[in-house]
Each structure stands twice: as structure tokens, then as C-alpha cells.
Design a protein around this nucleic acid. Structure first.
Lengths: 166, 166
DNA sequence: ATTTTTGAGGAACGATTGTTCTTGACTGAT
DNA sequence: ATCAGTCAAGAACAATCGTTCCTCAAAAAT
């Protein structure tokens, strides 16, 4: 009943993840989304309700597609070097941006970000057998390194002091 | 020659640091600035040229007022615990936000952020006598902790593994 | 006292923001 | 073949964006 969609919703959401992961929420206009996602304004609003609605869907997809696999990979980590390497090589642009610039003014975003961090902490804590506090510190350190663009040798210098952890 | 200003430029810039340090650049409108800074639009543009001009002045003031004192305090640090405590207690909202959401699209901002990080690295490296790489890692870790809102015990858990550094 | 310079005040600019409306084409069901 | 429901296309919405203009008051310089 009715006409079929001419766009792939999954592709659209993935493209939105890329856009929102590259610049601030207010820096991405609906025009940008329409242009880069290849979806008409009307369809966008029909499907996602609003710009914020699309953002939330994109954020959740980012967590499902990028953060959860990272957590699963972390579960097999044996040392902090592996942890930092895995986090550093993961695509976490949207999560980082959401944490810094959206969480403070959108509590739904804040909740998603918080549980995402918690899942990373848990994975690290389980994998390395360390306290929750140290796991949170490792997540924080890895995010900080990512934020700074992974300066040469910084990760190695840190893990050299940290391993072995037991 | 001419009428005197009715506003204190320093106060205005400090207030701008607070505003820009609290939410994203595009989230702060000129109307917001006019309202919270107590300066008329006209004077704002006469004095700073543009919104971006005011932002750059605010960023540089933030670096001079908040980041440089932090670097000086770090110079007296004897262990990584002190480093993390100092960085965690410093007001670095604007620097963090600038690094995450402005540096990628404004190379002048990127340059300021880069030298600011470098000065912190240098201070830590000098104070603790560690390599530049490890100093960068410590700065990154401290920023990551700040980003996560300093989870209970995370800083302590990290420094417990790091100190002594020599 | 007059001139000249500058800031304050506020309206207004065009452009862009997020969102909605109208129209028509397409397609599955009757 | 007709109907009903969904989508695409694009114009258009009010609101807000950053910015500028015009006018007048204030104060330093002549």
C-alpha cells in the first residue's frame, strides 16, 4: 500500500553519523543533511521527525555500529597497550562530540553517552581484571589521546608505565 | 578624543570566555552575547570586528588567564598525582571545546589549541623529568578525565600505577 | 563655545535556520 | 480500472542568524 522508499534508511543514518561526527550539531544544517544524505527534506522529517530525531538515531547507530564492537574487542584485551590501541583506532568521532558539546544541553544524549562510557569501562574492567575506577581512567586516557590526535609515542609511553597491571 | 566606553572590555571578554566555554560556538548567538555581556551589538562589532573575532580574543584570554597559570603551577609538580589534580581542578572548558569542535574547521583556533597543549606538555615534562611523549600522554589522560567528569577514584587509580615515575 | 570623534541605542538588513505545506507521481490493494 | 496510501519535489513558512546602518548623545580637542 503506497509508494516504496527510494532511499536506504540505513545508508542515510550512516551518512548522518559521518556528518554529525565531523562537526558540531549546530554546524550541521538540515540543508547539509539533505545534500549529503540524498534524501528529500520531506522524507527526512517523515522518517525521523526532526533534526534532533535524526541526530539521536545516528548517535544510537554509532553506539551500535562502532562502540559496541569496540567493547567486544576490548573484552579480549590482555594489557593496557591493547586497550589504548583498540580505542585509538576506533571511529569515535560522534561519541566524543556528543560528550563534549551535546550532553550538557540534551539529557537524552547525556544518557546515551553515559551508558556508552560505562560499557567500555565494564569491558576493560572484565578483560584486564582491574577495578572499575582504573578501567574508567583507562577509557578516559584513551579518549584524551584520541582528542589530541594520538601524539607520537604518547600511548606507548603511557602503557610502558602501566603494564603489567597485576 | 571622543566618548569613553561605558563597559569594561576585560569584563566583557571574561564573560565571553564563560559563555563560549559552556556551549558550542554555534550554540552561542550574538543575541546571547549582547544579553549576557551587557554590551551593545554596535560596540561589540566595533571592538571585536565579528563574532569570530570576539571568540578568538576570548580563547586567547582563556589561555592567558587559565591555561598559562596552570602550566606555571604544573612546573612545581613532583608526581603524576599532582599533575592530574591540577589539571582536573583547572577551568579548561573553552580549551576543551575549542579543541573538539572548532579546531577542525578554524585553523587559527587549531594553532592556539596546539600551542596551549604543547605548553602544558612542556611544563609537565620539565617538572617530572619525563619524556615529551609521556608528558603528552599525561596531558591527554588529564583531559580525558575532565571530559568524563572525573569519575570517582579514576585519577587516583591511574596515578597509583604511574607513581613513582622514575 | 565649537568642532570632531567616538560610543550607545535600536531598527533593519539579507541570509540561513528548522520546519511545514501543497502538489503530483508512484504503487499496492480492491 | 479505481481507490487509497505513501513518497518525492520544491516552494514557502516564521524565526533566528550574523551583520550593518542611521541617528543622537557624550566627551576630548580646538
Amino acid at each position: 500500500m503506497g509508494r516504496r522508499r527510494a532511499f536506504d534508511e540505513d545508508e542515510v543514518v550512516r551518512a548522518a553519523v559521518e556528518l554529525f561526527g565531523g562537526r558540531a550539531y549546530d554546524g550541521v544544517s538540515v540543508d547539509d543533511l539533505v545534500t549529503h544524505l540524498g534524501v528529500h527534506r520531506n522524507s527526512l522529517y517523515k522518517t525521523f521527525g526532526s533534526k534532533r530525531g535524526l541526530y539521536l538515531v545516528a548517535l544510537r547507530r554509532h553506539l551500535a555500529d562502532d562502540v559496541r564492537p569496540l567493547a567486544e574487542a576490548l573484552a579480549a584485551a590482555k594489557d593496557s597497550a591493547t586497550v589504548l590501541r583498540l580505542v585509538a583506532s576506533a571511529d569515535l568521532g560522534l561519541l566524543l562530540l556528543a560528550a563534549v558539546e551535546r550532553a550538557s544541553s540534551d539529557e537524552e544524549v547525556a544518557a546515551e553517552v553515559s551508558t556508552a562510557f560505562a560499557s567500555l569501562d565494564q569491558a576493560i574492567s572484565d578483560a584486564l581484571g582491574v577495578s572499575a575506577a582504573l578501567a574508567a581512567a583507562l577509557t578516559a586516557a584513551a579518549l584524551g589521546l584520541r582528542l589530541r590526535g594520538n601524539p607520537d609515542g604518547a600511548g606507548a609511553a603511557l602503557t610502558q608505565r602501566l603494564d603489567p597491571l597485576n
